[in-house]
Structures are given as C-alpha cells and as structure tokens.
C-alpha cells in the first residue's frame, strides 16, 4: 500500500464506491435528483426574487420597505 496520504484516501473512496451493492442505484437517484434540483429547478423555476430584480442591497431594501409600508 502507498504511503502517500492522498493516494490512500483516494483508494479508500475508490474501493468503497466499487464495493457498493445497493449504492449504484442510489447514486443514480442522487445524481438525477441533484440535476433536477440545482439545474432545472433553481435555474428555471426558482430565481432569487430580489437578486434577480435589483442591482444592489439599497434597491432591495427600498423595495421591501415599500412592500411593508404600503
């Protein structure tokens, strides 16, 4: 076994993943899920409302102030 700590860590994870039995199906679910959440959902359906409409915090605070005092 290599004495290099990084190689040993790599081998630890590599062997671990290779030895998984149920895990392969789970990894597919995890990857699809993360893709749907972070790519499809976040990009197309969940833009940050204040971030996307205003350029700076001052404008954002003015907008919220307007909303709270109307």
């Amino acid at each position: 076994m290599s004495n290099n700590i990084f190689i040993r860590i790599f081998r630890f994870y590599y062997d671990g993943f290779r030895g998984m039995t149920v895990g392969k199906k789970l990894w597919i679910i995890i990857l699809i899920k993360l893709f749907v959440f972070f790519v499809i959902m976040k990009l197309f359906f969940f833009p940050d409302f204040l971030e996307s409409r205003f350029d700076n915090d001052e404008e954002r605070s003015e907008y919220v102030l307007e909303q709270l005092t109307q």
Binding site: L26, W27, I29, K33, F38, F46, P47, F49, V64, Q67
Partner: peptide, 22 residues
C-alpha cells in the same frame, strides 16, 4: 441517499416565494 438535499428546496423557496420574509 434518497433524502439528501431535499431540504435545499425549502431554501430555494425562501428566495423566490418568500423574499420579503427572507
């Protein structure tokens, strides 16, 4: 594995649906 990151959706909603609150 199946549950991981399901909570992140709630954080998305804070920014999009509940901006005055956030």
């Amino acid at each position: 594995a199946i549950g991981v990151a399901t909570g992140i959706i709630l954080e998305f909603q804070f920014g999009t649906n509940w901006s005055s609150y956030s």
